[in-house]
Design a binder for these strands. Sequence first.
DNA 1: GCCAACGTTGGC
DNA 2: GCCAACGTTGGC
Length: 137
Amino acid sequence: MNYWLVKSEPDTYSWDKLVQEKEAVWDGVRNYQARNNLKLMKKGDSVLFYHSNIGLAVVGIARVIKESFQDPTTKDERWVSVKLEPVKPLKRPVPLVEIKANPQLQHIHLVTHSRLSVQPLQKPDFDRIVAAGQSAK
DNA sequence: GCCAACGTTGGC
DNA sequence: GCCAACGTTGGC
């Protein structure tokens, strides 16, 4: 089981929309590093859902329900998509400022490499963020 | 809305 | 293969 974090601008595709639609084809990724991560996703992997630009917080947990396949939005074979479904929202969104303030989370891509839109997470870091999202702070 | 950081493109 | 120009992303 692997752990990931994906980013989306809520204006473009929000957590609420994922919940509403029950699943999402994660398409439109046009960055090699992010694409490589998509290819590594396995069915059942856990994915944190982060709102960029507006919100700036991790808002929910999703799950990979379909492994990488040709991105339906392009004929270009370089790009792939996966399918995600919502698992549950965090009780409380975990804001970026809080992650940046946590000494144990300084090394994650969200902090060091914020532009990467599909990022791997180590389990302990995934768990820390989820735990923060369950506690009222 | 600005701008820094980053990735990609294309001329040479 | 280098690097300048350009486009995009995302935090502030």
